[in-house]
């Protein structure tokens, strides 16, 4: 509940932002919301499920490309529709995750550092593949992807302005965050923690770790796919970098800096890092990446739970102990 309090507070604060910010910054905030959603997907699979996926952009990219192809009407019998595109993007990402997951996790399975390296390699392969797949734009990517379109039954309601787009994205991301917040507190959440901490005992109690792993992997992929799909409607452009290795490692940094074991911290980690990048890269120029690299090292060594999650958890602890004392 108190976790949800933080989520609601954060989103309430975000909701008033477009009223005071300029058009430019609202547009930026739209991107941050999507990056935050993407960070949530990684936090779920890594922080809760204990699966270190070094190639989370695989699913973001699949979502992005499926959305691009379907809303541009390139899948000719399938009508170009915003809602259909979003669901196809989620399903495609989840299906790929199911395929990949059942190959990687089944049997003795691959985990820990091996999984990190393999997912990294897959992200690199897919980036190479997309750069050379000329039907999908190759290296230059796909251009002119239609924006968010809320219209139904052949009525079009295209959202070009950043403020209405913000509130649409805000509601989607808010719902998913609340849903995930509920999920990790549910029985399934307890299973995830068991999966991360002691999979052997989980088997002993009659659960199948493989099933749980696959479920969380697919769910996380679907969310990442959704983030990718929303991203291209905003950006109008899908390129191989969306599926690749750089974005995969960037999201990893946001989530690790924020705090992987707390959804809202991961979400804020993405927003804070992007925001800092926007400001500080102007201020520090080329030194920014150097600073980010060092900050990341320091945070991993000294604050393994994350720079944002550590104070939040300390606060919650005090809040709880005060309540118990009273």
């Amino acid at each position: 509940m108190k976790n949800n309090l933080f989520i609601i507070f954060t989103f309430a604060l975000l909701a008033v932002m477009p009223l005071i910010l300029s058009d430019y910054w609202t547009g930026q905030l739209n991107y941050y919301l999507i990056y935050g959603l993407f960070a949530l997907s990684l936090s779920l699979v890594w922080g809760y499920g204990g699966i270190l996926c070094f190639g989370q952009a695989i699913f973001f990219g699949i979502g992005a490309y499926v959305m691009a192809v379907s809303t541009k009407g390139m899948l000719s019998p399938v009508p170009a529709n915003f809602y259909l595109g979003l669901s196809l993007a989620c399903m495609a990402a989840a299906a790929f995750a199911a395929l990949l997951g059942s190959f990687l996790f089944a049997g003795k399975g691959i985990n820990g550092p091996y999984l990190a390296i393999i997912t990294l390699a897959i992200a690199m392969v897919l980036e190479r593949l997309m750069s050379n797949w000329y039907a999908l734009g190759g290296y230059n990517g796909l251009l002119d992807i239609p924006p968010i379109n809320l219209g139904l039954f052949s009525y079009d309601l295209e959202i070009w302005d950043s403020r209405p787009a913000f509130y649409i994205l805000w509601s989607i991301v808010f719902c998913i965050t609340l849903l995930l917040g509920w999920l990790v507190k549910s029985d399934f959440g307890s299973l995830l923690i068991a999966l991360r901490t002691n999979p052997e005992r989980l088997t002993y109690f009659g659960f199948s770790p493989l099933q749980i792993k696959l479920k969380v992997f697919c769910l996380s992929a679907a969310i990442a796919g959704l983030a990718g799909a929303l991203f291209v409607t905003l950006d109008g452009f899908a390129s191989p970098t969306l599926i690749g290795f750089t974005l995969s490692t960037e999201v990893l940094i946001w989530v690790a800096l924020g705090g992987k074991e707390l959804l809202i911290a991961a979400f804020l980690g993405a927003i804070a890092t992007r925001l800092a990048e926007n400001w500080l890269s102007e201020l520090f120029g080329d030194y920014w990446l150097l600073i980010l690299g060092f900050l990341f090292m320091v945070s991993v060594v000294l604050f393994p739970k994350g720079l944002i999650a550590t104070p939040i958890q300390a606060f919650l602890k005090r809040f709880n102990s005060n309540k118990n004392a009273a």
Partner: peptide
């Protein structure tokens, strides 16, 4: 961080970003 093998991936990744950027500078 010897005791936390998975964290070595992250920490050395941060190091790799910093080294790359140092060379660019």
């Amino acid at each position: 961080i010897y005791q936390r093998p998975l964290d070595t991936i992250l920490a050395t990744w941060g190091l790799s970003i910093a080294l790359k950027q140092a060379i660019v500078l």
